[in-house]
C-alpha cells in the first residue's frame, strides 16, 4: 500500500497535497484498490465552492459508483481534464497523474481534521483487521 509521507488524508480515503494556499486532491491507493477498475469520473467545475466532508466528485468502477468528499473547503482552481478519457490513471497513478483537482483552500484550521501519513497508515491497517 503506497501512502506518501508528504500528504494529508481523510477517513474516506481522499488525499490533499498542500502547496502554500493551494491543495491538490485525489483518492488514495487504498481507495483505488478497493474500487477496482475506474471507468468514469465526474468532477466539479472550475470556481465551484467545495465544503470539507461534502461531495466533490463521483467515481464509477465497473461494479459501482462512489462519492468522493472534499478534504478541505475552498474554491476549485482547475480539474484534471485527462481523467475524462483516461479514468484508469486513477488506478495507475493515484497520487500523480490520477489527481482530481486543485483548489484554493479557505480555512487553514481545517487541516487539523486530516491525518498525516503515519496516522492514515494505522487507520487503514485497522480497517483490514
Amino acid at each position: 500500500m503506497n501512502i506518501p509521507k508528504n500528504l494529508l488524508y481523510t477517513k474516506d480515503h481522499e488525499w490533499a497535497r498542500i502547496e502554500a494556499k493551494t491543495a491538490y486532491v485525489g483518492i488514495t491507493d487504498y481507495a483505488q484498490e478497493s474500487l477496482g477498475d475506474i471507468t468514469f469520473v465526474e468532477l466539479p467545475k472550475k470556481d465551484e465552492i467545495l465544503e470539507q466532508t461534502k461531495r466533490c466528485a463521483t467515481v464509477e468502477s465497473v461494479k459501482a459508483a462512489s462519492e468522493v468528499y472534499a478534504p478541505l473547503s475552498g474554491r476549485v482552481l482547475s480539474v484534471n481534464a485527462e481523467l475524462a478519457a483516461h479514468p484508469e490513471l486513477i488506478n495507475q497513478l493515484p497520487y500523480e497523474k490520477g489527481y482530481f483537482l486543485s483548489m484554493e483552500f479557505s480555512n487553514d484550521s481545517e487541516k487539523a481534521n486530516l491525518m498525516d501519513a503515519a496516522s492514515y497508515q494505522r487507520y487503514v491497517e485497522g480497517l483490514s483487521k
Binding site: 471507468t39 468514469f40 465526474e42 464509477e60 465497473v62 459501482a64 459508483a65 479514468p87
Partner: peptide, 9 residues
Amino acid sequence: QADSRRAPR
C-alpha cells in the same frame, strides 16, 4: 446505450 462512459445500474 449511453453516449458517455457513465453506467446505468
